[in-house]
């Protein structure tokens, strides 16, 4: 059974449909890239998958023992976080919220988990630093470590490289690829960067206009890709 399946999904806000007819499934170990123009509803799709928004139509089914609350999420940056006084340690630890249940405090296991994910993201030297004073790339690593505390199975990343310089972007992609290939974590990533999508992903979901879903090879030969690539070149 697939880890995550969306059947005939319609999504949007307050009953207003933004995208519809979305069908795809993600198997354990897949690397799926979601592409599409700005405003086409990629972030909305993520929020719907995460259960932050109810779907307007269709259904989302999880399998392979994945619980809805066990998805690691890297959001597009929000305003609040920018001036929030929080240390790296506090933020990463908060990723263990789903294992905490109604327990009021984090236990040893949670702290161990946070520590190992901090090491995994190679930010051990930053634990005591204030999040808002870090560089963009460092901030993303912190949020990725937090997401890894919440999941061992599925990572959902919303434009993880937005605003990063080329070198840091490449590092971030490598890091994500390593999590997928080495640790077997399934990845769903939203990206503007079609070249990176084609390079790293094994499946592509194209929202906006005609919805496309298939392997990266199939996508390269489809009409959506050609139109989208042209649009990209014009920028």
């Amino acid at each position: 059974m697939a880890l995550l399946t969306c059947r005939d999904l319609s999504l949007g806000y307050d009953g207003r449909v933004i995208a519809h007819g979305i069908n795809f499934s993600v198997e354990s170990g897949d690397y799926l890239c979601v592409v599409g123009e700005n405003g086409s509803g990629k972030s909305t799709l993520m929020k719907t998958i995460l259960g932050l928004l109810p779907p307007i139509g269709g259904e989302i089914v999880t399998g392979d023992g994945l619980k809805h609350t066990e998805i690691g999420y890297l959001p597009q940056q929000t305003e609040v976080q920018k001036d929030f006084p929080a240390s790296v340690w506090e933020i990463v630890l908060s990723g263990c919220g789903n294992r905490m249940g109604s327990r009021p405090f984090y236990n040893k296991e949670d702290k161990e988990r946070a520590r190992s994910n901090i090491e995994r993201m190679r930010i051990s030297h930053l634990v005591k630093r204030c999040y808002r004073e870090l560089s963009g790339g460092q901030q993303q690593r912190v949020l990725l470590a937090r997401a890894l505390c919440a999941t061992t199975k599925l990572l959902v990343l919303d434009e993880p490289v937005a605003g990063l310089d080329p070198v840091v972007t490449a590092e971030m992609y490598e890091l994500i690829d390593e999590l997928n290939k080495k640790d077997g974590i399934t990845v769903i990533m939203i990206s503007h960067d079609i070249a990176a999508a084609l390079k790293y992903a094994d499946h592509i979901l194209h929202v906006s206009g005609n919805v496309f879903f298939g392997t990266t090879e199939e996508y390269k030969n489809s009409g959506e890709a050609l139109a989208f690539l042209k649009g990209g070149e014009n920028k």
Binding site: L50, G51, V80
Partner: peptide, 10 residues
């Protein structure tokens, strides 16, 4: 810190 993340993780 992040209401969406908190909500998504239950």
């Amino acid at each position: 810190f992040d209401e969406n993340f908190a909500k998504a993780t239950g």
